[in-house]
Nucleic acid binder design. Structure first.
Length: 562
RNA sequence: UGGGGUAUGGCCAAGUUGGUUAAGGCACAUGGUUUUGAUCCAUGCAUUCCGAGGUUCGAGUCCUCGUACCCCAGCCA
């Protein structure tokens, strides 16, 4: 046991493991697994599980974590998903080394174990229809009743089961059931299905099988075959634990992992259910699984979230059995914190307002030094071209500024970052009365941004030289939903009515400082005063990087105005 | 009394076998630094742990009775 993680706070699962270790359970081994079904893309909720499972393996001496695909339902699974899942886990920073497994690898073994159950009188082939089985199952407060086929002989069951495998029956015609207790208060114990017929070809086993094992049976056996010590899953499987244990108790397997359930992640202003995410994608509410507004790993990656930030988030939210909704602000804080220290700052005007410096020589250009990070000289610097025609942010000018506004206004003086002080002398409007251009003068003495006479200005603004600027597209993303709990069961029906119509704003008229021409896919920058932006990994072109806003900067000015 | 769970500040969450003033993060508030109204720094933020009783010298931690919320009737995982 080693406690080499400084950030991890204790949680009930680690406490259990610590106790197990103290008691020398499992010979001191710690072996977990992350068991996704390859039927969709991974999202932030999976990241919690990945960080938990792989994190525990990392933190305990000799601990290991497997990646195992729970691929027992060929109708829903495919290689696209399994490939993307592997990519995402790697990208998040975890390594399963040579321990990549698939439940389908155990199909033969699983089949033999099922025969064993039959031989032991613990399983039988049933011919009831799906509807009948539902009827026979009873209800929450009413016991079920036994199937008329429950007492078939071992020989008959064995024969029937072989013929199921041989494809002699149609889907739904029969299935293998565990013989447990039709009156159990736990519905999962009322003779659950073990094998069903599916004449579907499987993404790994092809047409080798036409019967497929069910989750409850497959999962515990797979865990045991892999020597898992702690099988971590989400709360909804709590009721399945007796079944998990039951199967392993019946079968001749030494290893009996301990299933421990924890609460799944819920994030405010978003949805984290595969079904809902899939619906958004299929209906075109978002562009695809990697739409930057989605909480999928690929979407967040495209948005500019880093693996470090996501892992930090997962460690901050903790692991408990309490059903909670984490404020998405925690996530945003994690990226900001990570990006603050790792990104270069650049100047980018998103919503341009033209400024003409009347006393600056027309046609002249000078280069001004600008560090890439104000608090980290190691990041180096670049030079910004300055000329007499600039763009500043529309929102940095107000014709009739309120008291606390200390940006530009008629007659006001402000600093252009790393450049000069300028004073607004004239405001030019179009016929509609909109401000379309500002006339200003600059003070040559203030080059670099300081006045030799010691005079101060309240505002410092970002800017870009019109002639030198890189014009490109910038996408502003905001939360996908307007409601904090679109995912709560109060909104099972109308959750999509909370979709935020302004979750994406495309700016095709943004002007960036010229150095950004070299920005590479997935590079992330801080656009000073506006936020963190990531080069889109899909739509960017050579010489035309397209930027996605990851998250805004904290803005106490905006907060003041609310 | 179907069964299984959970309840600690606005949101999360530590609180090992009951023992001083109930960690920490996010959010919020206030002050300081600042050529990003950013960052950073400092300070504040639960006489109280779902409620009511009880045991005890002492309870968030034990007992009793309640209350609220979540999960379960797929041949999904």
């Amino acid at each position: 046991m080693s406690e080499n993680s400084t950030t991890e706070t204790s949680n009930f699962i680690r406490n259990i493991i610590n106790d197990d270790l103290k008691n020398n359970k499992n010979d001191g081994r710690v072996h977990t697994r992350f068991p996704p079904e390859p039927n969709g893309y991974l999202h932030i909720g999976h990241a919690k599980s990945i960080c938990l499972n792989f994190g525990i393996a990392q933190d305990y001496q000799g601990g290991i974590c497997n990646l195992r695909f729970d691929d027992t339902n060929p109708d829903k699974e495919n290689v696209e998903y399994s490939d993307s899942i592997q990519n995402d886990v790697k990208w998040l920073g975890f390594d399963w080394e040579d321990r990549l497994y698939f439940s389908s690898d155990y199909f033969e073994k699983l089949f033999e174990f099922a025969q064993q159950l039959i031989r032991d009188g613990k399983a039988y082939v049933d011919n009831l229809s799906a509807d009948e089985i539902r009827e026979y199952r009873g209800a929450l407060t009413k016991p079920g009743k036994e199937s008329p086929h429950r007492s078939r002989s071992v020989e008959e069951n064995l024969d029937l089961f072989d013929r199921m495998r041989a494809g002699e029956f149609n889907e739904g015609e029969c299935l293998l059931r565990a013989k447990i207790d039709m009156a159990s208060p736990n519905m999962n114990m009322r003779d659950p299905a073990v094998y069903r017929i599916k004449k579907a070809s499987h993404h790994r086993t092809g047409d080798e099988w036409c019967i497929y094992p069910m989750y409850d049976y497959t999962h515990c056996v797979s865990d045991a075959l892999e020597g898992i010590t702690h099988s971590l899953c989400t709360l909804e499987f709590e009721d399945h634990r007796p079944l998990y244990d039951w199967f392993l108790d019946q079968l001749p397997i030494e290893c009996h992992p301990q299933q421990i359930e924890f609460a799944r992640l819920n994030l405010s202003y978003t949805v984290t259910s595969k079904r809902k995410l899939n619906e958004l994608v299929v209906e075109g509410q978002v562009s695809s699984w990697d739409d930057p507004r989605l909480p999928t790993i690929v979407g967040m990656r495209r948005r500019g979230y880093t693996p470090e930030a996501m892992r930090d988030f997962c460690s901050r939210i903790g692991v408990t059995k309490t059903d909670t909704i984490i404020d998405v602000g925690v996530l945003e804080n994690c990226v900001r914190e990570d990006l603050d220290k790792r990104t270069r700052r650049v100047l980018a005007v998103l919503d341009p307002l033209k400024v003409v410096i009347e006393n600056y020589p027309e046609g002249e250009t000078e280069l001004l030094d600008a560090p890439y990070h104000p608090n980290d000289p190691d990041m180096g610097q670049r030079q910004l071209p300055f000329s007499n025609i600039l763009y500043i942010e529309q929102s940095d000018f107000m014709e009739e500024p309120p008291k606390k506004f200390f940006r530009l206004g008629p007659g006001r003086e402000v600093r252009l970052r790393y450049a000069y002080f300028i004073t607004c002398t004239d405001v030019i409007k179009n016929d509609a009365g909109e401000v379309i251009e500002l006339r200003c003068t600059y003070d040559p003495e203030t080059k670099g941004g300081n006045a030799p006479d010691g005079r101060k200005v309240k505002g410092t603004m970002h800017w870009v030289s019109a002639e030198h600027a890189l014009k490109t597209e910038v996408r502003l993303y905001d939360r996908l939903f307007n409601d904090a709990k679109p995912d709560s069961n109060k909104h099972e029906q109308d959750w999509k009515s909370f979709l935020n119509p302004d979750s994406m704003t495309i700016l095709d008229n943004a002007y960036l400082e010229p150095s950004l021409i070299d920005a590479k896919s997935e590079d992330i920058y801080q656009f000073e005063r506006t936020g963190y932006f990531c080069v889109d990994n899909k739509d960017s072109l050579d010489g035309k990087p397209i930027f996605n806003r990851t998250v805004t900067l904290r803005d106490s000015w905006a907060k003041l105005n609310k």
